[in-house]
Design a protein around this nucleic acid. Structure first.
Lengths: 130, 130
DNA sequence: CCTTGACCCTGTAGTTACTACAGGGTGCAG
DNA sequence: CTGCACCCTGTAGTAACTACAGGGTCAAGG
């Protein structure tokens, strides 16, 4: 399997695959006679895992941890559970932050009757004179 | 007003103030005899505006636009309104994305009875075997 | 008078997770 | 044999800062 095929199979860009290899997230594959990277099914599984974790919003650093944990199949999955839970609460925090932001921006927008900048409530709201 | 005071007054780091100057967002102030930056109230107002817009999630590029618009006080504030509205819908999109993520991660978490990695549903969910 | 500490200066490099070249080599279809 | 799509390496760019390194300045205390 060449890099382009692997990339296509995992909806990843070729450059990203090489990037993952460079930072040590994806093992370096064998090379063909022409020095082309030659991937096997283990690489496909690994990259699929990485992409899925990324899609769920895990950082590369955390993905690295998850990969290490996933490799030790006798270990308790408590650690995995903890990582996932803390990620979940981080997402909840982000949603709350964005919702607060949304409310405030909505309020700013509602206040503007929109004639000229001189009496634009949006600009006023941004530069509160006092 | 020295840079430290300006920074404190706007809850900004000193380095960030210098950064804003370097990228042309904040005008270069006069210098004291010791080559210290010396800010006036116009800088304070400007930086307050920038920080407030940043707090509302506007990118520096958009803040730049808003500053230009804010300076021309005879202009219609239609453009400002448009920027704010498109930013609002972007926030809505982000909230929706995060909510979907949250649902999926929650589903993954719920599925795990947490014994060993070998039968950890979280790891399974990340690496769907097929 | 001297020193100590808090501030200020410039310039560069690091952060995250890629993405985009530049400048070259390889493999195959027509 | 000549395109063209693909592959290679290495470097630089993105957003918005943040963190030094290596220096200068200023006011207060001893």
């Amino acid at each position: 399997m060449k890099i382009g095929e692997l990339a296509a199979a995992t909806a990843t860009k070729v450059e990203t695959v090489r990037y993952y290899e460079k930072i040590g997230l994806l093992a370096s594959p064998a090379r063909s006679s022409a020095n082309y990277r030659s991937y096997g099914s283990e690489h496909l599984a690994r990259l699929s895992f990485i992409r899925r974790a990324r899609d769920l919003g895990f950082s590369l650093e955390v993905v690295r941890e998850l990969l290490t944990l996933a490799d030790d199949r006798t270990e308790s999955c408590e650690a995995v559970d903890g990582i996932a839970r803390s990620h979940l609460s981080e997402i909840d925090r982000k949603i709350a932050d964005l919702s607060a932001l949304r409310r405030e921006l909505g309020r700013v927008l509602d206040s503007c009757s929109c004639d000229t900048i001189a009496d634009c409530k949006i600009i006023d709201a941004l530069a509160p004179r006092r």
